[in-house]
Design a protein around this nucleic acid. Structure first.
Lengths: 237, 237
DNA sequence: GGGTGTTGACTGACTAGTCAATCTATTTCC
DNA sequence: GGAAATAGATTGACTAGTCAGTCAACACCC
């Protein structure tokens, strides 16, 4: 359950001895008016948001740190005040978003609804994530998966976590008789996620038509395709 | 470790060419002897093969052209004698392999077998491609398919072609009543390919166990998962 | 006044691609 | 047959440019 939490501690050694932010001893920031800490946090966020746009537009490798600073409307050096490296910006974007996804999956799984509805909720969440912020999803799919190589084990552990959570949903449904057992839960999770990601990839590269009705249709079809093959033959509907 | 290896064999092919090819008047090339054109083609191929290994190991962006030359055991400049740019090496690798895949899909489609078997044959081909040359498939998936952005429209057109061919198989099966029609053929093709690619990605990044039995199981499960949801409910096949 | 936030010119390291020279197989011509 | 010429293959030092990350100084709020 809380397996992801200890991993946060892994990153504390990222603070170098010389550069970078010191953790404020008492992080108590005033509420209401724009405090200094508040505007500082705004700048950090502005850099992250700019990173999303620039990475999506030019690609992680092709863009320069100066492009991110320009897009955010801050000085070049400020990027290095908030982040240790260009990589760390991408890391942060991925980990932020992925944590939200993992949390959503956990919440969905906690509900007392059929597995089919759980998968539908997960598919909806991911597709809504795309419609809400296509650039961010593009960056995560195109730049992070690609770099999972070079990036640390952290990313792979996070990705594995998502597959584990989904396959647990399938395993339980198989035990309940809602899903058949010929297909391993692990494989079902891979196929389910793979189908969704390919749909997003299709939209990202213009291989599939975009638009509200297509997004809604995709949500239905992912579940219909995957569950049509997972539903127990003798079962209800 | 492997960086030092090519150094040792540096002069190897020079000596081999010299000893194997003495003066041959009247252009009478003995059988088995390497002609000039032949060894030239070999060098080109050596560079491509080295590219596969280096791209897979270090990633396209992270590696240097010098790494490819070293790995191939040729001089830096020779890479540019055969290829206009580093990009062109990757382009060539992708287009070569993708053309083979498109041709295979066309041949499979031409056979008079159920659509389910056609999809099984395609899944087998792709998975066999991975088992036969994991590095190449890794490069294609990680560096090209996911990065179609940065590369020209050629790549996207090729990728689209694959989806079109697969969805035509589904469309025909729907017309025949072998597959149900609730799921659009276009979407089915995306889900099918997405599931396969995600399985390969799992193997590439060590998220899924590798091994002969897993490869064979994956071939079965892809078809079982996707077709289980596509087979006409009442259909007799 | 002290400290955090902010600036942007600068540096040091790195690499894609060039090119002039050299080498070798093949062809030409006597 | 063999010398000379040709065409293509091969070499690696070099150029020209890029860009991530540093740093010393300045701005501004508490």
């Amino acid at each position: 359950m809380s397996a992801a939490e200890p991993r946060n501690g892994d990153r504390e050694d990222l603070e170098g001895a010389r550069s970078g932010q010191r953790r404020r001893p008492n992080g108590d920031a005033g509420a209401g008016a724009k405090t200094r800490a508040k505007t500082a946090a705004d700048k950090r966020r502005a850099i992250l948001d700019a990173g999303v746009r620039v990475f999506a537009r030019q690609g992680f490798h092709a863009c320069r740190v100066a492009d991110i600073a320009d897009e955010a409307g801050v000085a070049y050096g400020l990027v290095y005040h908030y982040f240790a490296s260009k990589d760390e910006i991408l890391d942060t974007l991925f980990l932020e978003r992925w944590a939200i996804m993992l949390e959503t999956i956990r919440q969905v799984d906690a509900q007392e609804i059929p597995a089919r509805e759980k998968l539908a909720a997960i598919a909806s969440f991911i597709i809504d994530s795309y419609t809400h912020n296509p650039d961010l999803m593009k960056v995560i799919i195109v730049e992070v998966t690609r770099a999972a190589n070079s990036f640390g084990q952290t990313h792979l552990a996070q990705i594995r976590q998502a597959f584990t959570l989904i396959s647990e949903i399938v395993t339980k449904a198989q035990a309940d008789g809602e899903f058949k057992s010929q297909i391993t839960a692990e494989f079902a999770a891979i196929a389910f996620y793979g189908a969704i990601e390919q749909v997003l990839t299709g939209w990202i590269f213009g291989l599939l038509p975009r638009g509200e009705e297509h997004y809604e249709q995709a949500k239905r079809l992912v579940v219909e395709t995957i569950c049509g093959g997972l539903d127990a033959p003798g079962g209800g509907s």
